[in-house]
Nucleic acid binder design. Sequence first.
DNA 1: ACATTACTTGGTCATTTAGCCAAATAGATT
DNA 2: AATCTATTTGGCTAAATGACCAAGTAATGT
Lengths: 104, 104
Amino acid sequence: MSVASKAISNKRAAVIKALAHPSRLLIAESLMKGEQCVCDLKDLVGADMSTVSKHLTLMREAGVLNCEKRGLNIYYSLACDCLGEFLRCVDKLATGGTKTKRCC
Amino acid sequence: MSVASKAISNKRAAVIKALAHPSRLLIAESLMKGEQCVCDLKDLVGADMSTVSKHLTLMREAGVLNCEKRGLNIYYSLACDCLGEFLRCVDKLATGGTKTKRCC
DNA sequence: ACATTACTTGGTCATTTAGCCAAATAGATT
DNA sequence: AATCTATTTGGCTAAATGACCAAGTAATGT
């Protein structure tokens, strides 16, 4: 693999990784309905505010979320409306019936 | 969150996690062209065979891959043909221009 | 039966991740 | 200016991940 395509591969993996955690997935799904501030998301996830904040920073740095400060609150929103089709595929895989248990 | 929806959330996250690594992403993309055996994928990834094998096991257990043994070789294939739309969204996010650098 | 080939499994180690708490910052309110 | 509220940052620790090597297994060829 070339250096360039390795960089692309890493960037893609970072985006996917930003969604590869139950709490972050929950956050992403909730934001499909519209922007929310950190304390809303903290209630949703049920973890320490600092923990949630770190998840959000990670997602923003990966390019998955945008944020905007208004007054005391910081509102996070999805950077792309394609999450639906992303999740459609994930659910297909997550609920897929005929898995190969083993072959060896 | 209920216990049931937490379980679903974890399952989804496991599927996403199975794709959230440069080597595993590379493997998934390569398998879009058709099944391949472990040594092919080892050459593709360029890591130790045992490392690749562990990646493949993880992906299979998450439900992303199927495998079938024929002779000495084990052939891995994608469990779902929806990877294309999945990656379309990932690329949109990975290459997205207007990212919020910071807001605080 | 013995060697070979293709994989997997177990062990170990370094790195990353995820959680919490305490402290810092920034805007709003008094 | 002092305080309150919302959020981030730093520090710490426990747990998970990813890589390699060495050893084990299973089908094939001799």
